[in-house]
Nucleic acid binder design. Sequence first.
DNA 1: CAGTCGATGTACT
DNA 2: GTACATCGACTGG
Length: 188
Amino acid sequence: MADFSELRQPAWLVAPRILGSELIREIDGQQLIGRIVETEAYTETDAASHSFHGRTPRTDIMFGREGTAYVYFTYGMHYCFNVVTGEEGHGDAVLIRALEPLAGINLMHEYRHNIVSDQNLTNGPAKLCQALLINKELNGHDLRQAPLRLVIKPALAPKAIVQTTRIGITRDQHRLWRFFIKDSPYVS
DNA sequence: CAGTCGATGTACT
DNA sequence: GTACATCGACTGG
């Protein structure tokens, strides 16, 4: 059983912690693997977070058990994937914004309709969902199990991590809750 | 290059 | 109605 105890803390601590960890998607016996290179933290006291307005049918998953997937649909056509963190009852999640493709790259290209280069395959929250076939069916999925697993790797050195403001939000812009691996060519 | 903008489901005012 | 944790096509320089 995977040890997800480190996810049982606030999103802003987990977000930098899971940089370098791997996401494994299994489809028809094939594995698509990506290394997490960019994340953002969201929590319930944060006006930019879906959980800010409390527990609703949509955000219920965010308040649930750590290590489950929160997948939401946005802009009429895109999905975004988050890892739920924190104690149960806390609306915390980490948005996965970019991956470095490690395995199953040919399939990722296929799911992305062969329109982009390796660099643009998974460097954005909606792009990586397309590449790994992540959609609302995986909302609430336990990331300890197939067909979508999170494999937590040792923490990276702080000096390898860059911290900035989050992308695409208009509220609570002062928080420095976007984290990415310095020098990675695969960040968004 | 950079800047603008259409697509289009869902939650919320 | 309006905004939205986005992307990619299109424009002009």
